[in-house]
């Protein structure tokens, strides 16, 4: 009986704190994405040859995010019936967007980002489902133009 209460308490904790943390994270993601809204980012291999490039650098961003107890429980329930596991899609979405942002923050004053690649893996798949965490790494090539008149990043767009 005690075990059941303990399990329920953990679920409740996961549901409340986890949802709160996720909401806060999404707010931060949206705010920071807004700041980089004018920085062109593509997965193309070549930059357009209209501008003279003076500097080239590898930019990397990475993050490890785990899912909360309640969501893990919900996912295991959902697995019985099949279909999209929504609790995990938000986890992956947050991780990808966060790592993309960190990559951009690593080269915040560049003019163009090309050849974006996203790599996903799990650090700890220790047999059982003890840790449902995802690790995302985003890397790209950041370019700086010789003529810097028209660009300045990041744009600070406070509402």
């Amino acid at each position: 009986m005690l075990q059941l209460y303990f399990g329920l308490a953990l679920l409740l904790l996961g549901l409340t704190v986890g949802t709160l943390l996720e909401r806060l994270h999404y707010r931060s993601i949206r705010k920071r994405e807004h700041a980089f809204i004018t920085l062109p980012t593509t997965s193309l291999k070549h930059a357009p040859d209209t501008e003279q490039v003076v500097r080239t650098e590898l930019a990397i961003g990475s993050v490890v995010i785990s899912v909360d107890y309640f969501k893990r429980f919900a996912a295991s329930m959902k697995k019985m019936f099949g279909g999209e596991i929504r609790s995990y899609s938000s986890l992956l979405d947050r991780a990808r967007r966060e790592s993309m942002l960190r990559m951009k923050e690593a080269c915040a004053d560049c003019d163009l980002i090309i050849n974006v690649r996203v790599e996903t893996s799990t650090i700890s798949n220790g047999g059982d489902s003890s840790i449902g965490s995802v690790e995302v790494m985003t890397y790209a090539t950041a370019l700086w133009y010789g003529n810097r008149s028209q660009h300045s990043h990041p744009v600070d767009l406070e509402e």
């Binding site: 704190v17 943390l21 994270h25 995010i65 785990s66 899912v67 909360d68 650090i123 700890s124 690790e135």
Partner: peptide, 23 residues
């Protein structure tokens, strides 16, 4: 710590650091 953090979800800073160092 990561195991604890797992209850409420969110970023596992220790592992992010680990990833950065190894990279």
């Amino acid at each position: 710590m990561a195991g604890m953090k797992n209850l409420v979800g969110g970023e596992l800073k220790g592992y992010t650091e680990l990833l950065q160092e190894s990279r």
